[in-house]
């Protein structure tokens, strides 16, 4: 098989804060086989060509959400993207767009994690129950209202696809707003009022302009654009009726 081994050129956007003033491209020639992912290409570089290359990875099977990066300008999980698709022209790999580059292909996740905490990403029970009362029951249709939005793996590809986040990082962004909707849409949850203080702000649902690319790039089919935009109508109704609904004005 060795004689059929192909070589592909991988251009990597390097950024070493201690020596690079700004990111620079570095090119590597990587031998590959048809079953190799982009992540495996980078691992080859780190093992055999340049040990200083930094990138995040963990599971290699599209569930940990660590290895997101721009592959030829598109947000991708590098473990789920194959080198063969870029042969023979080669490919370019950048750190995820719209996020600050920490080093090479690693971005800063600080903003994401801070925002993630702020939306209370857990069920706030509508009615507290004791163990003796048993579990919270839910119909399949009630489950369908949020299930899709619960598949998020926090890979941040949607942030790299969202120009509104890139233009204005105070916008909460697609993934976290989708997660917020995931809990708000859960029939067992009663935390909507707490969470929608953010949702109804410019930093919340209203920061979205329905570009829709977040939903295209999501490797888990979460559809953040839908999670966000379906709340605009409810938010608008709440805006206009808050003074006539009991307790609406304080929200």
């Amino acid at each position: 098989m060795a004689d059929t081994e192909k070589i592909i050129e991988i251009q990597v956007l390097r950024y070493r804060p201690e020596q690079d003033k700004e990111p620079v491209l570095q090119s590597f020639k990587v031998p590959f086989t048809d079953d190799m992912s982009v992540l495996q290409g980078l691992q080859y570089i780190k093992d055999f060509l340049d040990g200083t290359l930094s990138f995040r990875w963990s599971c290699r099977m599209a569930i940990c959400g660590s290895c997101g990066m721009m592959v030829d300008g598109k947000p991708k999980l590098s473990c789920k993207t194959f080198l063969r698709e870029y042969y023979p022209q080669g490919l370019r790999v950048d750190a995820l767009a719209h996020l600050p580059i920490e080093r090479d292909l690693m971005v800063s996740v600080e903003d994401f994690v801070t925002k993630l905490e702020s939306i209370k990403p857990y069920i706030i029970p509508k009615e507290p129950r004791t163990l003796e009362q048993g579990e919270y029951l839910q119909t399949p249709q009630q489950r369908d209202m949020y299930e899709q939005f619960s598949s998020c793996i926090n890979c941040m590809l949607c942030y790299a696809a969202c120009p509104q986040y890139g233009l204005n990082p105070s916008f909460t962004g697609p993934g976290i707003l989708a997660l917020m909707h995931r809990y708000n849409a859960d029939s067992r949850d009663g935390g909507q009022a707490e969470r929608n203080e953010l949702g109804y702000a410019d930093e919340g649902y209203w920061g979205c302009t329905a570009v829709g690319y977040c939903s295209e790039v999501c490797p888990k089919g979460v559809d953040p654009a839908n999670a966000i935009n379906q709340n605009k109508m409810a938010s608008a109704i709440n805006y206009f009726t808050r003074f006539i609904t009991p307790g609406g004005a304080e929200k």
Binding site: L198, A201, D202, W206, K232, A236
Partner: peptide, 12 residues
């Protein structure tokens, strides 16, 4: 967080 006034313009 300040409530957005977007609903007015968004509805129109």
């Amino acid at each position: 967080m300040k409530r957005s006034n977007e609903p007015i313009f968004w509805s129109l």
